[in-house]
Design a protein around this nucleic acid. Structure first.
Lengths: 315, 315
DNA sequence: CCAGTATAGTTGACCCGGTCAACTATATGG
DNA sequence: CCATATAGTTGACCGGGTCAACTATACTGG
């Protein structure tokens, strides 16, 4: 904990200086930081009452009033009485105002771009990942876009890594589990059947927030089976429906590719996973204690039937 | 690139607000932000001339002078003429001044701690990793402490993931290489011989900045061999001697455990790796083109003799 | 050894961004 | 129709910070 606090403070100091340097460069425009923010907000919301702006930006009414008067004087905005309320005036941005906002926006982009210019593609990507991850960790409510995508280079192993870390933390499953998931990931890569199997990564603003594998188990006496493996959702991304989205992707894919059922292996202690599978129509068909993770644990086999096994598959 | 810029700007906005919230809480002390920074600097450097402080904190001389006068008036510092220069006075912090600095420090720690309190252990660790990584990416010169340590839970797979990502980016080696490294990592975990084998992670302020495996190849006709595998150094951590430190760890370990030689496999295109191995006394003993990464590439076997193979190992 | 220039620190004047509270004008609810 | 609330404006003021002029001492080259 102490170490974490020190690391965060070190970053805070660093980043304050860093952002300060960027801001200073863009400061040589006609607007100061507050004015720029205000102008952007007007562009975003126009037509808008001063009222709204004050609430959104938490500005002092007097200060806001003066800034708006200044904007109007410089021809950046217009204010017009509407029928609705004779006290207030609807604020709209003029072409000139929009131009100023665009110019500032461009300058900020350029400053950041210059900053990123030193980095290679991988480093840039690492940076974006790190920053986005930090943001989502610090503020779980932070808006972020969810998108499923196939795994990119290295992500299959990264999934194994995250599984090992998360289970070590939450359940103390150590070297044995780590070995198993690493082997599962390696086998997935080695035996990958394109078009029949898939690994989905759930990206929150591009950051891996969860993942799942679907593999081909081959024909059995009860039809052709797919297997759902290594499902996980990152702690920082929980309560966003990512588990559901991943399971949906699996069942959708399995249906499209005419699998007859999906099986999976899970554990009695993994309550939320079990609820997730139940919600999606899986049922537990077997359960037994095993020792694959060191300590004895209760494993469970779950299954979901997609359609009755066709006669042709049966002997 | 556009996406990266947007992500960085989103983070900047977020973090400015975030730090702002923390700062506001600590604002209800007698000192403002500049004064607090100044006081900390005095504590760190005392005894010190105003001169130095001005340079270090880039403060206006007049502003600095007034702040120092205020500090002296409130008994936080003392200023005394020294023989050296009759214009300047050496500034030292008083017990009271130190107490004020400590109090502010404590309050900041507490604010950050409260912020981190919501997070679990893994999330906190992820956050520290993400922030530190971001800092080192944004400023490669940022001071950071290097320490080698054995791999923690999940890190072996994470090494495989990073290898796959980095080689995909730098050399376009894709699925085949990814599969190979994943299998290598899984095999390392499965066949791990404690005390005879090791995986080192180079941590820069705790963040994985590189890694290497040393495995037992068993007895051969030329003595007992160790094998160095999956060496990598993160792009953000290059030019800090991490590669050297990792190779040193391997050779030291191999010597201690009485291996007779170390072998490794590398590639002709990996110039800096080859130079690293050569620097550490490895020599290339074989070379041939293989097709394991899709495209044909020139592979090389290198070796370093640690001691003459003992007679007993020979038939 | 002195003139000229540089440096350490102080002080007064001032500016900018921002807050506070009083004020006008309109809206709304009982 | 009155009391109260809300939209926006204005004057007074404050803190943080900059700028330039000033004093006092130090250094450097002739």
């Amino acid at each position: 904990m102490e170490h974490a606090i020190e690391a965060v403070r070190t970053f805070n100091r660093f980043f304050t200086r860093h952002v300060g340097a960027i801001d200073r460069r863009f400061l040589d425009s006609d607007l100061n930081l507050s004015e720029a923010r205000l102008l952007f907000e007007i562009v975003r919301r126009q037509p808008v009452m001063a009222n709204m702006l004050q609430g959104a930006l938490r500005l002092d009414r007097g200060y806001l009033s003066r800034m708006l008067a200044g904007f109007e004087k410089h021809g950046l905005i217009t204010r017009e009485r509407t029928g609705a309320d004779a006290r207030a005036r609807a604020i709209a941005v003029t072409a000139a105002g929009r131009a100023v906002a665009d110019a500032i926006d461009q300058r900020q982009r350029a400053a950041v771009a210059q900053d990123l210019g030193r980095l290679g593609r991988t480093e840039r990507n690492d940076l974006v990942q790190a920053l986005t991850r930090a943001r989502l960790l610090l503020d779980p409510a932070s808006p972020a876009e969810l998108a499923l995508r196939p795994a990119q280079a290295g992500e299959v192993s990264q999934i194994a890594a995250r599984q090992a870390m998360l289970y070590a933390e939450s359940h103390g499953w150590g070297h044995e589990l780590e070995t198993l998931v690493a082997e599962t990931a390696a086998a997935f890569l080695r035996r990958f059947k394109p078009g029949r199997e898939q690994c989905w990564v759930a990206g929150l603003d591009g950051v891996m927030a969860g993942a799942v594998f679907l593999t081909d188990e081959g024909p059995t006496d009860r039809g052709h089976a797919a297997r759902l493996r290594l499902l996980h959702v990152e702690p920082f991304a929980r309560r966003r429906g990512i588990g559901d989205a991943l399971v949906d992707a699996c069942t959708g894919f399995a249906r499209e590719h005419e699998y007859d059922r999906i099986t999976l292996w899970t554990h009695t202690v993994l309550e939320s996973a079990r609820r997730l599978y139940a919600r999606h129509g899986f049922v537990c068909i077997a359960s037994d204690v095993h020792h694959e993770f060191g300590e004895p644990v209760q494993g469970e086999t779950w299954e979901k039937t997609l359609r009755d096994a066709p006669a042709s598959d049966q002997p």
